[in-house]
């Protein structure tokens, strides 16, 4: 997957002519030396395992009968496997709902905080960011308790209005239960990135706009949002990649909601189940690569749609 990305992105750019000067060779070597330590880790911790997983994915293993080479049959199987297809369908639906809302919240809060400069705003900024520092394990633990119908605050609130507490860990509402956990954890992080980008805008632009009679709304819409668009695009891409690979939160909530979160709930969970519980690394690897292909297509489509391919990869 990594390799297939290379031509499509690099061809989008004109290759800049390298400067040809006397110390060029020395600098060439120095450049490689700076990159080399990371390069070694990159090769041993990423390329090698990926290559190995790719190799594994070409075999099929059965509990009886052993392992045999099947070339790309596992991939054919994966894309015809209802578990994988439903998992992909779920993460795409989840992305389509989660990411816009999450971005809207992050952007709105960042714009608000950019406007309000006082101690409360600074405090709020930190507090909204804080969930990012919480391990997913602990975040899920806390929300699992808070969702409780028996002893959570939802139960108290619902009993006030005489209704049954909503079951965010049941199969009907699990989508929103997860939606909430992810938004809580990540919205603050995205907000900080956008906020920092907003703070980097030259204030004289606002003065000029104000003299033209623009309201704060118009300034936000016409100046601020366009200027932070690259940051928005960057976090959109990361949110998209992260959400399509959705794994941590549902996996960790699973002991609390086994009925609503089956082992094939997301493609990544399905790959994990195949590899670690059903001893089928081969099919697990094939699912991982298939998911990688889906991620790549989605990201590429997204970048193409926003016609900003260049800015993220420059």
């Amino acid at each position: 997957m990594t390799l297939s990305l290379t031509p499509s992105t690099s061809t989008a750019h004109p290759v800049r002519a390298a400067r040809r000067r006397a110390p060029a060779r020395r600098k060439n070597l120095a450049g490689w030396l700076f990159v080399a330590p990371f390069g070694i880790v990159f090769v041993t911790m990423l390329i090698l395992p990926l290559g190995y997983a790719l190799y594994l994915s070409l075999f099929r293993r059965a509990l009886i009968g052993g392992t045999r080479l099947v070339w790309f049959d596992n991939y054919v199987k994966a894309f015809n496997d209802p578990s994988f297809r439903e998992g992909v369908s779920f993460v795409i639906r989840f992305s389509l709902v989660l990411i816009p809302v999450q971005m809207a919240i992050s952007l709105a809060v960042a714009l608000m905080l950019d406007l309000m400069v006082n101690r409360f705003a600074r405090f709020s900024r930190l507090m909204i960011f804080m969930p990012y520092a919480i391990p997913a394990v602990i975040g899920a633990l806390m929300w699992g308790f808070l969702y409780s119908k028996n002893f959570g605050p939802l139960a108290d609130i619902s009993s006030l209005v005489g209704a049954d507490a909503p079951d965010f860990l049941g199969s009907k509402l699990i989508f929103w239960g997860l939606f909430n956990v992810v938004t809580w954890q990540w919205a603050g992080y995205y907000m900080i990135i956008l906020f920092a980008a907003l703070q980097g805008i030259d204030p004289s632009l606002y003065e000029a706009a104000r003299m033209d009679g623009a309201s704060q709304w118009q300034i936000a819409l016409r100046i601020k949002i366009p200027l932070v668009a690259p940051a928005l695009l960057l976090i959109l891409v990361f949110a998209l990649i992260g959400t399509l690979q959705f794994f941590n939160e549902p996996k960790i909530l699973q002991p609390l909601a086994a009925g609503a979160l089956p082992e094939d709930f997301t493609p990544n969970m399905y790959a994990y189940e195949q590899a670690f519980n059903l001893a089928n690394y081969n099919y697990g690897s094939a699912i991982s690569f298939s998911l990688g292909a889906v991620v790549f297509v989605c990201v590429y489509l997204f970048l193409f749609a926003t016609r900003k391919r260049g800015s993220f990869l420059s």
Binding site: M1, T2, T9, Q245, Y272, Y281, S285, V295, V299
Partner: peptide, 14 residues
């Protein structure tokens, strides 16, 4: 840059 897209869970197995 492509590597950013690799699922870390996919790496854990191999």
């Amino acid at each position: 840059l492509g590597a950013v897209m690799v699922p870390t869970t996919a790496l854990v197995i191999p």
